[in-house]
Simulated assay, not measured.
Amino acid sequence: MPISPNQGSTGGGTLVTITGTNLSNTSAVTFGSKPATAVTNVSPTQVTAVSPSGTGSVGVTVTTPGGTSNPVPFFYVGAPFKSSLSESAGPLAGGNTITINGTGLSTATSVSFGGNTATPTVVSDTAITVAVPAGAAAGPVSVSVTTAGGTNNGLSYTYIDDPTITTITPTTGPTSGGTALTIVGTNFTSTESVTFDGVAGPFSVVNSTTLSVVTPPGTAGAADVVVTNPAGSATAAGGFTYVAGPGI
């Protein structure tokens, strides 16, 4: 007598389908010592029932006027617990794969990022990987994992849009570096690097639209300035010009 699914939440509420023979006029379905919270006699070969709360492995039996069936196993699964995300931010377009760590993840069937859902790959009971779906807008969303034991959330993931560069002030400085710059643009909160023709300069995030940067040493001439965050990069081609010092 097969039962599908054969596992569900410890809180109950799982709709299961029991297949067998002579199931007409089913009067009860029992999970261990507890009766199902709802029973529907679909046909002589099929009954549906809603599991009560429980723990561990229990035997499910069906009772008809002809007697009680042999038990088939049903496994109660606790709700998942998530402890961390391998990455807490990423591009608005999604597509990056992250790892979710926790416990009770072996039966994970979906992961929701705000209102968008993705199907995970189960690595073990303590880890799953998932390709992040595209976000609706930049900003934080809650992350929830659904397993046979239920749904749990509590972690946050932040969608980030590509940075943009509007102005750089000043636009010139010595080849020795050390020029203090202000870069104005957008989506700077999670800036990872600022480079001048590929050479990184120290920076600090003033706010989401402003960076304070110090130029590294460079070669005389125009240098491309690139601001990078987890979503992508913005380039100001020839945005800063290195000027050689006088020679005598």
Rank of each mutant, 00 (worst) to 15 (best):
Pro91Phe: 09
Thr119Ile: 12
Val72Ile: 14
Gly54Met: 11
Thr37Ala: 05
Thr147Lys: 02
Thr103Trp: 06
Val58Leu: 09
Gly12Ser: 12
Thr21Pro: 00
Phe203Lys: 12
Ala28His: 05
Thr158Ala: 05
Thr186Ala: 00
Gly139Gln: 01
Thr55Asn: 14
Phe74Val: 07
Asn22Pro: 02
Thr164Ile: 07
Gly59Val: 12
Ser53Ala: 15
Gly32Leu: 04
Pro80Tyr: 03
Ala137Gln: 14
Ala244Met: 11
Thr235Val: 15
Asn153His: 01
Thr37Trp: 03
Pro120Ala: 09
Asp161Cys: 01
Val145Thr: 13
Ala223Asn: 09
Ser33Cys: 00
Thr19Phe: 04
Phe196Tyr: 14
Asp162Gln: 07
Tyr242Gln: 06
Val77Tyr: 04
Thr119Phe: 10
Ala148Tyr: 02
Val132Ile: 14
Thr45Asp: 08
Pro133Asp: 08
Pro246Lys: 05
Ala49Arg: 10
Gly8Phe: 03
Ala136Ser: 15
Ser53Asn: 13
Ile248Ala: 14
Thr68Met: 04
Pro163Tyr: 00
Phe74Gly: 02
Phe81Asn: 12
Thr172Ala: 06
Gly67Ile: 10
Thr169His: 01
Ile165Val: 14
Asn41Phe: 02
Leu15Ser: 08
Ser124Val: 10
Gly94Gln: 08
Pro91Ile: 05
Thr103Gln: 13
Ser212Glu: 13
Gly114Thr: 07
Thr209His: 06
Asn41Glu: 11
Thr210Leu: 09
Thr186Asp: 00
Thr97Ile: 15
Ala148Leu: 07
Ile98Ala: 07
Leu211Ile: 03
Gly232Leu: 03
Gly59Ala: 12
Asn6Arg: 06
Ala234Gln: 09
Gly139Asp: 07
Ala231Ser: 15
Ser53Glu: 13
Gly54Thr: 12
Val141Glu: 08
Thr146Trp: 04
Asn96Gly: 13
Pro71Asn: 04
Lys34Trp: 00
Ser156Asp: 02
Gly20Tyr: 07
Ala28Glu: 13
Ala137Pro: 00
Thr209Asn: 14
Thr109Glu: 15
Thr164Cys: 10
Val226Asn: 03
Val143Gln: 01
Glu192Phe: 01
Ser208Gln: 02
Thr103Tyr: 09
Ile183Trp: 00
Ala237Glu: 14
Phe240His: 10
Asn207Cys: 04
Ala79Glu: 06
Gly78Arg: 06
Gln46Met: 15
Phe196Lys: 05
Gly135Arg: 03
Val205Gly: 06
Gly20Gln: 09
Ile168Asn: 03
Gly13Leu: 09
Val42Glu: 13
Pro65Asn: 08
Thr10Glu: 15
Val206Asn: 10
Pro35Leu: 08
Ser124Met: 05
Val243Arg: 14
Pro35His: 05
Thr109Trp: 01
Glu87Pro: 00
Tyr242Val: 11
Gln7Ser: 15
Ala127Tyr: 09
Gly20Val: 09
Ala89Cys: 07
Thr26Trp: 05
Gly114Asn: 07
Leu23Gln: 05
Ser204Trp: 11
Gly232Gln: 07
Thr146Ile: 06
Val39Phe: 08
Ala148Pro: 01
Asn25Cys: 02
Val111Thr: 08
Val205Glu: 02
Thr146Tyr: 03
Asn153Phe: 02
Thr129His: 06
